[in-house]
Structures are given as structure tokens and as C-alpha cells.
Amino acid sequence: MTPYRLNRLFHPRSGRALDVAVDHGFFGERSFITGIEDMRAVVRTLVDAGPDAVQLTVGQARHLQAIPGKDKPALVLRTDVANVYNSPLDSRLFSHHVTNAIEEAVRLDAVAVCANLMQLPGHPEVREANIRSIMELRAEAGRYGMPLMIEPLVMQDNDTAGGGYLVDGDIEKIVTLVRQAVELGADLIKADPSDDLRDYHRVVEVAGDVPVLVRGGGRVDDRTLLERTVAVLDAGARGIVYGRNVIQHPDPAGITRALLAVLHDGAGVDEALDSIAEVAA
């Protein structure tokens, strides 16, 4: 664990973090960039909303880091690209990490880098490519003191699920892939939510002393999102990584404020919902 950069990711009072992921354009899927076409404006909106971190790619990180001042969100840098989200899938699947990704992260003043560990049924070659990338990134990350966030992503079969960004919430599969990420040297885990959140403590337990941040997945209503957030925090998660549930929300600042209240102030769901209504009014 490299603590110094993580001091800028986790809130000093709560020890938790909200990372807003806006790295979707990296994956070459048209539907993923709906609502985030103007990245300069998206980043400005997020900076004003004030999450703990924003997750961006090497080509878009400049929009965050060019903003002056020390109070802007920290940067989490996405380091790998794959073609696993379109439907139908391409005839040949790939996953590659950015050349010199850790040096790029240092130059961009990132607090962590993020890489996938994907389990896609029928395509073990993608998982193999992810593992090779993680091992290379782990070696360089240790040299430069850069925390490595691994994203164990248990995916549904693309054909039967209708394609796209669909996760398999089977707790047994999630626990197994999270443990493999820990064994590969993760400093942070960005994990799927399980179908039954009452079981989510098992994910935290298998991660041991590696902090778990929970992915948001597809767009849901505000109450569902906040209830899920409270549930995973109660299970021991150290934070959340939400994308479309923030950037595609009609009031990104309001939902960010509500999530931060839950994370850092211990607000309940109803209290957080009221704050969204007040902001939106």
C-alpha cells in the first residue's frame, strides 16, 4: 500500500471517497458518450459539484488538471482500453494498457491508476490480457509509489444479456475475482455490487485490508442509488465509483451533494433525498 497519494483520495474525516468515473469514451462504444460529448463542460460541472475524485483517461485528464487551485477533485487515471461492451461483440476481442501508463499518471499528478480484471464468459483471452497488464502496471506502480486500483468486473454473457455494460451480480463470482485482484497486488478494489447486498460484507472480508470502492453500474432512480450506497457502506466499503448515475443525472451537483452527505456525514436516505430536492428547487 502506498499511502501518500491516497491521502488525497480519501476524505480526512470519514476515510471514504466518491470517485466519479467519466472514462467511458475510451471504450469506443457510441452509447457510452451520450451526455458527455463536451468533456470540458462535464469536468467543470463535476469540479463545481466537488466529489473526492474524477476518473479520466490520459487524453481527457488535462481538463481537470488545468484548473487552478488546490480544492479540485483528485485524478484517478484509467489505464486500459478494451472492446468488450458493444453488441454484437467484435470477432476479435482485445484489452491493452497505455504505454508508460504509470509515468503518465505521475506527470498528470494522479492519486491512483485504474485497470480492469474482466471475467467475460467464453473469452478467457480477455482475462489473460488483463492479468498481463496488471502485472506490468504493478511493477511500475511500485517503483513510482502510484496506487493501483484493480476493477474486478464479472460480466454477463454478451449474447444472452443483450450486450453492453451488464454485470453478473453473483456473489460467489464477485468474491472470487476480487480475491484474485488482491493476490495480484491491488492497492484499491473497484468492485461490482452483488444482487443481494446483504451478502456484500463477504466482498469486503475477502479483500482484507485493501479498501473496496463499489461501482455504480447502470442508471437507477435516486432512492435506489442512495439505498445501495448506504448498504455497501454498512457492509464495510470505503467508497463508491459512480459514473452515469452522476453525469447523466438532471442535477449532477445535487446528487453529488447527496452522496457526499451519506459518505462523509452519515446522512440517511430520506435526508439525502431532501437535499437533492432543495438543490433542484
Results as ranks from 00 to 15, higher is better:
Val178Lys: 13
Asp38Gln: 05
Ser194Val: 01
Ala17Pro: 04
Val214Asp: 06
Arg40Pro: 03
Leu6Thr: 03
Gly28Leu: 08
Ala272Met: 13
Gly243Met: 10
Met1Gly: 12
Asp196Met: 02
Arg132Glu: 03
Glu140Trp: 11
Thr224Asp: 12
Asp19Ser: 08
Ala61Phe: 00
Val269Trp: 00
Asp168Cys: 08
His249Leu: 05
Ile36Gln: 09
Gln55Glu: 00
Ala207Arg: 01
Ala231Pro: 06
Asn130Trp: 07
Ala53His: 03
Ala235Pro: 07
Lys70Trp: 15
Ile189Lys: 07
Val22Thr: 13
Val154Arg: 06
Pro88Gln: 05
Arg223Glu: 15
Tyr165Arg: 09
Val269Leu: 13
Val47Gln: 10
His63Arg: 01
Ala280Cys: 08
Val279Asp: 14
Ser194Asn: 03
Asp52Cys: 00
Ser194Ile: 01
Ile171Gln: 02
Asp192Arg: 00
Asn130Pro: 02
Glu103Met: 13
Tyr200Leu: 02
Val154Gly: 06
Ala139Cys: 06
Asp196Pro: 03
His123Pro: 11
Ala105Gly: 10
Asp80Gln: 04
Ile255Arg: 09
Glu125Trp: 12
Met155Thr: 09
Arg219Gly: 00
Val230Thr: 05
Ile67Gln: 09
Ala261Gln: 13
Leu93Ser: 04
Leu46His: 12
Asp19Met: 04
Asp234Gly: 08
Val111Met: 07
Lys72Phe: 01
Met155His: 09
Ala115Glu: 15
Val84Ser: 11
Ala231Ile: 00
Asp52Pro: 00
Val203Glu: 04
Phe27Trp: 11
Ile247Asp: 05
His123Cys: 10
Ala261Tyr: 08
Gly239Ile: 03
Met155Asp: 13
Leu9Ser: 02
Ala280Asn: 12
Leu89Asn: 13
Ile102Gly: 03
Asn116Trp: 08
Val154Asn: 07
Asp251Arg: 11
Gly218Leu: 03
Ala281Arg: 10
Asp23Cys: 03
Lys70Leu: 15
Leu226Arg: 09
Gly239Tyr: 06
Pro73Phe: 03
Asp48Ser: 14
Leu18Glu: 12
Leu64Ala: 00
Asp19Leu: 13
Arg78Asn: 09
His201Ala: 06
Leu93Trp: 07
Asn100Gly: 09
Ile247Tyr: 14
Ile131Phe: 03
Ala281Met: 09
Val20Cys: 06
Glu278Val: 07
Pro193Arg: 08
Thr176Arg: 14
Leu108Gly: 12
Met149Cys: 14
Ile150His: 13
Asp109Met: 04
Gly122Cys: 10
Met149Ala: 13
Gly254Gln: 12
Gly50Gln: 05
Glu37Lys: 02
Leu77Asp: 00
Thr99Arg: 15
Glu278Gln: 14
Arg179Tyr: 09
Glu140Phe: 09
Ala253Phe: 05
